[in-house]
Computed example of a mutant assay.
Amino acid sequence: MEKTLRVACLGAGYFSQFHFDAWERIEEVELVGIADRNIDKARPSGHPAFINLEQMLEATSPDLLDIIVPPHTHLDTIRVALDHGVKAIICQKPFCASLAEARTAVSLAAKAGVPLIVHENFRFQPWYREMARSLAAGDIGDVHQLTFRLRTGDGQGPEAYLSRQPYFQKMERFLVHETAVHWIDTFRFLLGDIRAVYADLRKMNPVIAGEDAGYIIFDFDHGVRAIFDGNRHLDHAAENTRTTLGEAILEGTTGTITLSGNGALHLRPFGENATRTLQEPIAWRGFAGDCVFALQRHVVDGLLEGRPFENTAADYLRVIEIEEAIYRSASEGRKEGV
């Protein structure tokens, strides 16, 4: 198939490997460059390597820029990309360093007529796509509650996070800003918009700057609730705890869906003990059910075929607003409307 979309990536840290692999598997894409201030990190990919963004944009003239660097760099990066005529941008989460910066980025992209998508990939994990299908089919009747228990098992001791993403230790906002935002977005994908939150957050590991455990209760319309129960010190039953990062249970009037740590989904009808399998665990390529590939495939389809995008930055502002409300709730000890 002819390569019709030129893609360049900024950032060659730990998680970028999943982006590179996914782009290489999309037939319509040509990965034309990778930039990192440590160019030795970019070179092993085998693609043209650059030491800074401007150099890469001028040399490659990409259609799409994939931003895979920390939040404090996002706004300036988006400005530079727009100034160089990039036609579409994907930006990793957490999106920008603040809500004000995120709003500015959205405004700049809108004025330029450039699609700006947040790389929020958890809603693209196959188990959540199957949950959404099952909900739409009415498999569990009227939804009452969704619970997710985050148990990554990587947060204990002085060496926590250092081998993979050492900057985690220095994030003053950690569990919610870096991790729970995945489920703010996923809960909205499954259940609709969030109306109020209540949060109890705490720091368990003294060597890190931010919180690493806590509970968040989300209110939705019609009395529906969701609970995020996160603790990065504890683990769950899985060969790879980073497949699902925890376990979930979705409960309704006619049935219950459970997500196990290997990515399997099971449905138990109300009043029965037997379950049927909605999704078998398989050896997914890439990260967490190959959700990086699924998101990037979704964006390519949107650009080439005119399909609507999920996770536009404009819509993602709502996720950041909810995140801010969670931190206010934890600080003030009360429920916050959003």
Rank of each mutant, 00 (worst) to 15 (best):
R6G: 01
V7Y: 06
V7T: 06
A8E: 04
Y14D: 11
F15E: 07
H19A: 09
D21C: 00
W23R: 07
E30G: 08
G33L: 04
R37S: 14
S45P: 10
G46D: 03
H47T: 03
A49L: 02
F50Y: 09
L53E: 06
L53T: 09
T60K: 14
P71L: 09
T73A: 10
T73N: 06
R79N: 05
R79K: 12
V80H: 01
A81N: 06
D83W: 00
C91L: 08
Q92L: 05
Q92H: 04
P94R: 13
L99I: 07
E101S: 15
T104Q: 15
L108G: 02
K111T: 14
A112Y: 05
G113I: 10
I117C: 04
V118F: 08
E120K: 04
N121M: 14
F122Y: 07
Q125K: 12
P126T: 11
P126N: 04
W127K: 11
Y128L: 04
Y128C: 02
M131I: 10
A132D: 14
R133L: 13
A136S: 14
A136V: 03
D142Y: 01
D142L: 09
V143L: 09
Q145Y: 08
R149G: 00
T152V: 12
D154P: 00
G155A: 06
R164H: 12
Y167L: 15
R173Y: 08
H177F: 04
H177T: 07
E178W: 00
E178D: 09
T179C: 10
T179Y: 11
A180K: 00
V181R: 12
T186A: 06
T186L: 02
F187A: 01
R188S: 12
L191T: 07
D193W: 02
V197I: 14
V197F: 06
Y198R: 10
A199K: 04
R202I: 03
M204T: 15
D212L: 05
D212R: 04
D221E: 15
D229P: 05
G230W: 02
G230P: 10
G230F: 04
H233V: 11
H233W: 15
D235F: 07
H236N: 13
A238G: 06
A238T: 08
E239F: 11
I249W: 11
I249K: 15
L250C: 11
T254A: 14
N262W: 07
N262M: 13
L265N: 13
L267A: 13
G271A: 11
A274C: 05
T277D: 04
L278D: 06
P281T: 00
I282T: 07
I282A: 05
A288C: 13
A288I: 02
G289V: 12
D290C: 08
D290S: 13
C291I: 05
V292G: 09
L295F: 06
R297K: 15
H298E: 08
R307M: 05
E310C: 06
A314E: 06
D315I: 04
R318E: 13
I320W: 01
I320G: 10
I320M: 13
I320E: 08
E323F: 11
E324F: 11
K335D: 00
V338A: 03
